[in-house]
């Protein structure tokens, strides 16, 4: 259960939004929309705890995320604008390092099979800098499958993806929601997902 009350955000000297409230139970999808500069990314970073809210609270399973600290991060996966990949490392290495840091060791085979699911078979051993933008995005998406965290926060995750990759993202999210996960997604695209509980937030400038 992810819950926000009277959330407000100020960046620099500018107020981005205030009085944002939502309540997401397991299995719900939350889409954040709005023009550039309306604070979509800031809201997502607030949810991740990377940004401290100017007002209001965010609660995860009833506890304020500020007081949860590192424990909160065991249940969270975040994919931001930047893919968070090391250019010098191969997708397999990238994946193994991230999951190692998250506390679950991943063998070479496991990493390869996960990368296979996101459509990177045959590319697992190329340095990430040789991959196309879409392929890097797919590598970043593979991260979601390693830890199986209950809360996904995805920022503009559909950009620079071809139609097969968009289908892949949809199926990943659908599967995640069916398992009782929560997904927070900032995107301009229509998601067209079949889900029982769907909320949308429109941020204005």
């Amino acid at each position: 259960m992810l819950e926000a009350t009277d959330l407000g955000c100020v960046r620099g000297d500018r107020r981005l939004f205030s009085d944002v409230n939502f309540r997401l139970s397991p299995g719900s999808l939350f889409q954040v929309q709005g023009p550039n500069g309306s604070g979509k990314t800031s809201l997502l970073r607030l949810i991740c705890g990377l940004l401290a809210p100017a007002e209001g609270h965010i609660r995860w399973q009833g506890a304020n995320i500020c007081s949860l600290g590192e424990d909160y991060f065991t249940s969270l996966s975040y994919i931001g604008h930047r893919n968070g990949l090391k250019e010098e490392l191969t997708p397999t290495e990238n994946l193994r390092v991230t999951s190692g840091l998250a506390g679950s060791q991943l063998s070479q085979q496991e990493a390869s099979s996960i990368l296979g699911k996101t459509g990177l078979s045959g590319r697992e051993h190329l340095p990430a800098r040789l991959l196309s933008e879409g392929q890097r995005r797919r590598t970043a998406l593979a991260r979601l499958l390693t830890c199986r965290t209950p809360l996904w926060v995805l920022d503009e995750v559909l950009t620079s993806l071809d139609s097969s990759a968009i289908r892949l993202v949809r199926s990943l999210i659908e599967e995640h929601l069916n398992r009782g996960g929560i997904a927070v997604i900032a995107t301009h695209h229509e998601l067209d997902l079949s889900t029982d509980s769907f909320q949308r937030l429109d941020l204005a400038l």
Binding site: C48, L50, E70, T74, L76, Y78, G84, K86
Partner: peptide, 12 residues
């Protein structure tokens, strides 16, 4: 490259 952000979000 955004990996520092990911490091901040690791559960440790």
């Amino acid at each position: 490259d955004g990996t520092l952000e990911q490091l901040l979000l690791t559960p440790q």
